[in-house]
């Protein structure tokens, strides 16, 4: 089940080699299941493949616990995947030796969900933004100059540099986090729910900032979120995750106009005040997400799906191209 397998072209139409390619990535965590020594695997990311072209934004959505954050963290090797391949700029991230990994990470940065937690409370803003430059041996004078540029880029000013994280509002903190991520001039930024902790009025400001810096620095984003409106706004393509798997993958406009997987339909119906293209009827899903330690047989979503038939329990639907550039994992997607 590969989105970007050999036979079909990636859903995105951008030419040239992808900046990031994830192939059959599996990140499992061991869990102790009661009995002695009986250990099971929590399949946080289960056989996920996707690719991102330079300058594009791929949105990854799903409920909490579906593995979207683990996918993002796996890309930067902040957690160790079980198997699979992550090719960044032509180089295998998972095979990189520690020194090489540090060099690679310079081009892959992360923006975090918790704007306060991701800033060391005992460091000044100047030290926070300049940390990457310090680590990579940029001399002090250049560091100061670069930090001063960056703080302006993210919409703050040099007067803020002597202050400490707790003196800022949530939106300002996230701006500091963005400046830190930009300091090393990365090619790829994994944004793990960058606006979900922010006030709605501030969310749009930060999203616009992310768009602006994407233009300015030619960035590629892997944008993780649970808020579909946010994802629709910023993404070129969207992958929907459920229980560690990608269940639908399409261009943003296609996915939002015509979802093919019932789970996506249910998610979209949950957007408050959906536009005219959207179904007025809210689809309420029954029950909870099944445990990723013991996923249901066949289609993982069948336990909550109103279209479920016998075939769904017997056979796992593969992610297939249901129409050009639109992939869905459902027996009834056509």
């Amino acid at each position: 089940m590969s989105v970007a397998d050999e036979t079909t072209a990636p859903a995105g139409e951008a030419a040239g080699a992808p900046l990031l390619e994830v192939r059959n990535l599996k990140t499992y965590f061991p869990v102790r299941a009661g009995g002695l020594g009986q250990s099971k695997w929590l399949k946080a990311v289960d056989d996920v493949s996707l690719s991102v072209e330079p300058g594009q934004t791929i949105g990854i959505v799903g409920e909490s616990g579906c593995g979207k954050s683990t996918l993002g963290r796996s890309i930067l090797r902040l957690v160790a995947p079980q198997s699979g391949e992550i090719v960044f700029d032509g180089e295998d991230v998972l095979a990189a030796a520690p020194a090489r990994l540090t060099a690679l990470r310079r081009h892959m940065q992360m923006i975090f969900q918790d704007p306060l937690g991701c800033l060391d409370p005992r460091m000044s803003v100047e030290a926070i933004i300049g940390e990457g430059l310090l680590i990579h041996g940029v001399p002090r004078a250049q560091r100061r100059e670069r930090v001063r540029e960056l703080i302006e880029v993210v919409g703050l000013n040099a007067a803020h540099l002597d202050r400490y994280p707790h003196e800022f509002s949530g939106g300002q903190r996230q701006r500091i986090g963005i400046a830190r991520a930009l300091a090393l001039r990365p090619k790829l930024i994994v944004a793990d729910e960058p606006v979900s902790a922010l006030d709605v009025s501030v969310q749009s400001q930060v999203l616009n900032l992310l768009r602006d810096v994407q233009q300015e620095f030619g960035l590629t984003y892997v944008f993780i979120a649970h808020d579909l409106a946010v994802v629709e706004y910023i993404s070129d393509r969207v992958a929907v995750m459920y229980l560690g798997k990608i269940v639908e993958f399409a261009r943003s406009a296609d996915l939002f106009a015509d979802p093919r997987m019932p789970y996506t339909e249910a998610l979209l119906s949950a957007i408050p005040g959906g536009g005219p293209a959207r179904k007025a009827k809210r689809i309420i899903l029954k029950g909870d997400v099944p445990s990723p330690v013991d996923p249901p047989s066949g289609c993982a979503f069948r336990t909550r799906c109103w279209k479920a038939q016998a075939v769904c329990a017997a056979e796992r639907p593969v992610l297939r191209e249901v129409r050009p550039h639109h992939h869905a994992a459902c027996h009834f997607a056509d």
Binding site: M110, C118, L119, E131, G132, R180
Partner: peptide, 26 residues
């Protein structure tokens, strides 16, 4: 386990840098 330590890792910080700059002061 705090996010700012993870952020330092993605910036390329090694263990001794993190201990000296982030953990010891805290």
């Amino acid at each position: 386990g705090r996010p700012y330590v993870e952020a330092a890792v993605t910036l390329g910080a090694g263990p001794f840098f993190i201990i000296a700059r982030h953990i010891l002061p805290n």
